[in-house]
């Protein structure tokens, strides 16, 4: 784990309100794995006070990419960074995806900004794996297909692709993958993950979910980010034990 002052190389708008930030961060870039995250201090002052956790979106040599929506003061400040600005990044943090198992097809399921960790995962999958990406959003303006392959789309309002949630769409199409072994990798709003978790546990399909929770430190000392274990008799920490969990391990 490192704390690195990273220089902003570029920042672009992917879809309205969703940004892709590229920073020069060679130490973290050399170590970080798909599904892990970094905790970013967006200002040099005490406001906002805490770091903000962001999944690693892509690694390109010495550069890290982070994909984020603006939904509060921290992300607003981050979105206004310009080339040459320095940001303070702590990482790599947490446990990422396990993707080298015995399966034929990797199925990515992303809801909204839940697309963030997948470009790096898709890029890192062993070459013999097939990939199919299911991407959901509220409307066509929220569909983020950056870095994805073999895409199926759903929108809540039906403005693009299937009308409904991405998990509903996946459930309908699951039959076509059924004969082969699949491994599912998912990230998105809790109701989506919950519906997927129910389905994959019932069908006994391997599924890893990337969870999120408000946190302060990102490495286990604040104890601020508990998630119920499957039995409900204890907690894991999202930052240290996750953010990626086997869907069977946690209660959402």
């Amino acid at each position: 784990m490192y704390i690195e002052k990273a220089r902003v190389d570029s920042i672009q708008t992917l879809v309205p309100n969703t940004y892709l930030l590229k920073v020069f961060s060679p130490l973290i870039a050399s170590k970080i794995k798909p599904g892990q995250f970094c905790n970013i201090k967006v200002s040099e002052t005490d406001y906002p006070l805490l770091r903000r956790p962001f999944s690693i979106c892509e690694v390109d040599g010495n550069y890290l990419h982070f994909m984020f929506d603006v939904h509060g003061e921290g992300t607003r400040i981050l979105s206004s960074k310009i080339i040459g600005d320095e940001i303070d990044i702590l990482g790599p943090l947490g446990k990422g995806f396990t993707y080298d198992g015995v399966y034929k097809t990797a199925i990515i399921i992303a809801g909204g900004i839940g697309a963030a960790p997948f470009p790096y995962l898709v890029e890192s999958l062993p070459k013999d794996k097939e990939v199919h990406c299911y991407i959901g959003g509220r409307s066509k303006n929220n569909i983020i297909d950056y870095g994805m392959k073999n895409i199926s789309v759903s929108t809540d309002d039906g403005s693009l692709g299937y009308k409904g949630t991405i998990v509903e769409l996946f459930k309908q199409e699951y039959e076509k993958f059924k004969k082969d072994s699949v491994s599912i990798f998912a990230c998105g709003p809790n109701p989506i993950l919950k519906a997927l978790q129910e389905f994959t546990i019932a069908k006994n399909i391997d599924c890893q979910i990337s969870t999120e929770c408000a946190m302060a430190c990102g490495f286990g000392i604040c104890q601020g980010c508990p998630i119920d274990n499957a039995d409900g008799d204890g907690y894991y920490l999202v930052c240290k034990d996750g953010p990626v969990f086997d869907a069977r391990m946690v209660r959402l």
């Binding site: 005490d46 406001y47 906002p48 006070l49 805490l50 929770c213 408000a214 946190m215 302060a216 604040c222 104890q223 601020g224 980010c225 508990p226 998630i227 119920d228």
Partner: peptide, 12 residues
């Protein structure tokens, strides 16, 4: 149970 922390102006 969560949520256990929330940020406030210059504090938490």
């Amino acid at each position: 149970p969560p949520q256990r922390i929330v940020e406030t102006p210059s504090g938490m």
